[in-house]
Amino acid sequence: MKFELSKAGTFLIVRIGGELDHHYCDIIRNRIDPELMEPPIRNIVFDLTGLTFMDSSGIGMLMGRLRIVQAIGGNACLICENKNVLRILEMSGVMRLFNRCKDIADAVRGA
């Protein structure tokens, strides 16, 4: 699993690559949540471009972060191209709740 955090204005940018399962979701959650408590951050972008595997643990992790940003009046965006990952995101309804963007520039436009 590859994981990288950065910031742009009100956006927290989370890049995740490789394989995302329960083991790594626990690690990622603990890294993201403290950052979401730091103003002016209130939006989150998940860049899953490099993700090759995700199971239901990823659904729970994404939905949990969505709930946090919604509670602080922000939005959640998702960048994803991998067919297997997209299938899981669509099946579980995650795709409908996130704004789908084509890249980071697209996601943070107007930040």
Binding site: S57, G60, I88, S92
Partner: peptide, 14 residues
């Protein structure tokens, strides 16, 4: 509370 989504068995089945 552990952020499980209840999709595991559905995914296995699909």
């Amino acid at each position: 509370e552990m952020e499980r989504s209840g999709m595991g068995f559905t995914i296995m089945e699909t």
